[in-house]
């Protein structure tokens, strides 16, 4: 049974169609990536899924007990708000210090608990956000361009982390990303979005489809680079 199902979901804002006819289901233990150009409705889709935005049509159905771990695109913490990492982890619910330590370790953020959120580097901040999302042992982990502020290497590391977390927790993972090459290798399924779903499937199939190339403007050189990476040794993911 899928964790979450969207049937014919559409979002219209001020007369503009942002999303239409979205049919999508997410399975347990599956890592799904949404790719698409700017303004294609990626973030809107995530906001519908976490319940921050009611769809104008269609419906989102999931088990009432589904717990979602959410990692936002960026989180601005006002400088007037003092916040240690440990306190941030305990929002909105407090957890045992053991659980907090474990989550920080899982996200490779151990030892940061006493630091101020404002003093963290981009990569540390992102790992703390991930750790917080992991605290509740979510059934579904949702990440909105969680690699912002990370360089290429940092992004690759972050995704390896995600794949490991998914294996450990057995949760579903849904993310939005721009980093096509890395995404392609880490994902079980890729969804191309541009207001509607243009194509979806296993990374190889999608990368070879013309819809994907048209949508993201991947030219031959990029494709070559992509295939060369694809034949790299597998240990990168383990």
């Amino acid at each position: 049974m899928p964790l979450l199902t969207l049937s014919d979901v559409g979002v219209t804002r001020r007369g503009n169609i942002i999303l239409e006819g979205i049919d999508l289901s997410l399975e347990q233990n599956e890592l799904v990536t949404i790719v698409g150009p700017n303004g294609s409705g990626k973030t809107t889709l995530l906001r519908v899924i976490i319940g921050a935005l009611a769809p104008s049509q269609g419906r989102v159905s999931h088990d009432a007990s589904l717990s979602i771990g959410y990692v936002p695109q960026r989180l601005h913490i006002d400088p007037t708000l003092p916040m240690t990492v440990a306190r941030f982890m305990a929002l909105p619910q407090r957890h045992s210090s053991d659980a907090v330590r474990r989550a920080l370790e899982q996200a490779d953020a151990a030892g940061l608990a006493d630091r101020q959120m404002a003093g963290l580097s981009g990569g540390q901040f992102q790992r703390v956000l991930l750790a917080r999302a992991l605290l509740t042992s979510p059934d579904l982990l949702i990440l909105d361009e969680a690699n912002q502020g990370l360089d290429h290497r940092g992004t690759a590391e972050f995704y390896r982390q995600l794949a490991r977390v998914k294996r450990e927790l057995g949760c579903g993972v849904l993310m939005v990303s721009h980093e096509l090459h890395v995404v392609m290798r880490a994902s079980d399924r890729v969804v191309c979005l541009n207001g509607r779903i243009c194509c979806q499937g296993p990374p190889d199939t999608v990368a070879g489809s013309s819809a994907y190339r048209d949508l993201l403007g991947v030219d031959e050189r990029d494709a070559v680079a992509f295939y060369r990476h694809d034949h790299a040794p597998e240990e990168a993911l383990s």
């Binding site: 319940g51 959410y70 989180l75 601005h76 909105p92």
Partner: peptide
């Protein structure tokens, strides 16, 4: 308090936690 603090941090973070 916890709900207020979470929504002050980020509204979407609050939504995802059912607030």
């Amino acid at each position: 308090w916890p709900a207020l603090l979470t929504s002050t941090l980020n509204p979407d973070l609050a939504h995802a936690a059912g607030i």
